[in-house]
């Protein structure tokens, strides 16, 4: 039980996919312009991670080693398509804003990475936990980048005006702002880790 819990929590801080493993940077940089986008993207990725880890882990004995990559991709792509359809139906505005980055979850390194490194080698329950933990970690990382970017670049949070009488720094919602914010957050993360040692 404790082990299962550890699989869940490691993705949030110790092995955070964005800040520590430094995977999935493309969506982390591209859709973190607003907190709403980041949370939406995080939930979509978590959904895919959860189900792809579940299926891949249960199929791990059935799928021969040599063709595992195409099999994983079919599984992942199917769930991504499902997410895409569901989002277009029930959250059309979010789907429009995330645009191409929803289908691009297929090539998100975190999902392929977890399938290859974890789900294909572990039992179903730990794999689900791993997928959930990584998904939550990804969502949290994305949200923290987005929080800073939306606040400084737009003066808003989740679309609400927070900083009035503030001249938002346009650069923060552009690409350089994303890279700077991510860099600073990784630095802070490393600082905390080094202090702990």
């Amino acid at each position: 039980m404790i082990k299962l819990f550890k699989e869940l929590t490691k993705g949030i801080f110790k092995e955070n996919p964005v800040f520590v493993i430094v995977l999935g940077l493309c969506p982390a940089l591209a859709v973190s312009t607003s907190l709403e986008n980041a949370i939406g993207m995080g939930i979509a990725a978590t959904f895919v991670l959860f189900f792809s880890n579940l299926i891949i882990s249960s199929l791990r004995k059935f799928v021969p080693d040599k063709i595992r990559i195409p099999c994983f991709i079919v599984v992942i792509a199917s769930f991504v398509t499902i997410v895409e359809l569901l989002m277009a139906a029930f959250a059309p505005l979010l789907a429009k804003r995330l645009g191409i980055f929803v289908p691009l979850i297929v090539v998100n390194c975190i999902i392929m990475g977890r399938a290859e490194a974890f789900a294909s080698r572990n039992k179903v329950l730990p794999s689900i936990m791993d997928g959930l933990g990584m998904g939550v970690g990804f969502t949290l990382a994305l949200s923290s980048v987005a929080l800073i970017r939306e606040l400084l670049g737009n003066g808003t949070l989740l679309g609400h005006n927070i900083l009035t009488n503030f001249n938002p720094a346009g650069i923060m919602v552009l690409a350089p702002g994303a890279l700077m914010t991510l860099g600073i957050l990784i630095a802070i993360n490393n600082l905390i880790k080094n202090r702990k040692k």
Binding site: V63, C71, L85, A89
Partner: peptide, 25 residues
């Protein structure tokens, strides 16, 4: 055979989801 069966199930699943969501979209 393995790849085909995975694709087969994926296709069934996808068409089911698509048929539900299409009208709403």
């Amino acid at each position: 055979a393995v790849l085909f069966s995975i694709c087969f199930f994926a296709a069934i699943l996808l068409s089911a989801v698509a048929s539900i969501t299409q009208p709403i979209i």
